[in-house]
């Protein structure tokens, strides 16, 4: 028996909207730790890791570990039927091939339930080692989204270079080149606008712009994004959800052939 109650359906809606275009089908794993997902995109270039911690839920009952295969597009369709301030309850019986999403309006005068078919998904779990990254940048999530979108219109790849002064995003395309430098800056009005650099060594890596743009669909989840880079490692683009957990995107770099 699984029963998870979350007061803000809006959060789950944002989570689904941020990954449904990158990953078609995925297993949601439910354990005492929380409600989590790990999945790669179809080309195995990017990996999504989501954790919604059990203590972030209003009610969390998961009798034993369970893995539920869902089509994320279909799950997003069902969640779109909830209002952001509805309470959502995710329910599944042991051995059932369906999951139920129940939405309750804040005044309790509208209660809806949507039953979705589960699917068998063969997916391998990858071991992601805890790593010390050579460079970590924390910056405004909306600024990062703007940069990825802007550079994506000029070129297919983005070079991200971190020095102790700041982070540089560069691209090159048929029509020309573009460079954006964000200097470290903590003297800001709103703390989410700060750009913080923690760097052991300068790092410069190249990535496909379309994946970075896809990751920024998670922008509504957090004010700041954390970008972690090391040579010969995938970049990690992380959106932390206050009290609930995180959405992490890993992207393999491009290298000179």
């Amino acid at each position: 028996m699984l029963e998870l109650r979350l007061t803000q359906a809006g959060l789950l809606k944002k989570v689904l909207e941020s990954i449904k275009d990158l990953v078609t089908d995925a297993n949601f794993d439910c354990s005492a730790t929380g409600f989590s997902l790990q999945a790669m995109d179809s080309s195995h270039v990017a990996l999504v890791a989501l954790l919604l911690r059990s203590d972030g839920f209003e009610h969390y009952r998961c009798d034993h570990n369970i893995s539920m295969g869902m089509n994320l597009g279909n799950m997003a369709k069902m969640l779109r039927c909830a209002s952001d301030d509805d309470t959502v309850t995710i329910k599944a019986d042991d051995g059932s091939d369906t999951v139920t999403f129940m939405f309750e309006s804040p005044s309790q005068d509208k209660i809806s339930d949507y039953e979705m078919k589960l699917m068998d998904i063969d997916s391998e779990h990858l071991g992601i080692p805890e790593a010390e990254y050579q460079a970590i940048v924390r910056m405004s999530a909306s600024e990062f989204a703007r940069i990825c979108k802007d550079l994506g219109t000029i070129g297919d790849t983005v070079i991200i270079s971190v020095t102790k002064e700041g982070v540089q995003f560069s691209t090159k395309g048929d029509i020309g080149t573009a460079n954006i430098i964000c200097r470290k800056n903590t003297a800001v009005d709103k703390k989410e606008e700060a750009t913080v650099i923690e760097m052991a060594e300068p790092v410069s890596l190249t990535f496909a712009s379309r994946y970075l743009i896809a990751f920024t669909k998670a922008t509504p989840l957090a004010g700041q994004v954390t970008i972690s880079m090391s040579y010969d490692m995938p970049i990690v683009v992380e959106y932390k959800m206050e009290t609930m957990g995180y959405m992490r995107f890993y992207l393999a770099p491009k290298i000179e052939e």
Partner: peptide
Amino acid sequence: KLKQQVISRFFAPK
């Protein structure tokens, strides 16, 4: 020329 790497190059199956 740039070559796109894949995730399995970095992370092994559990």
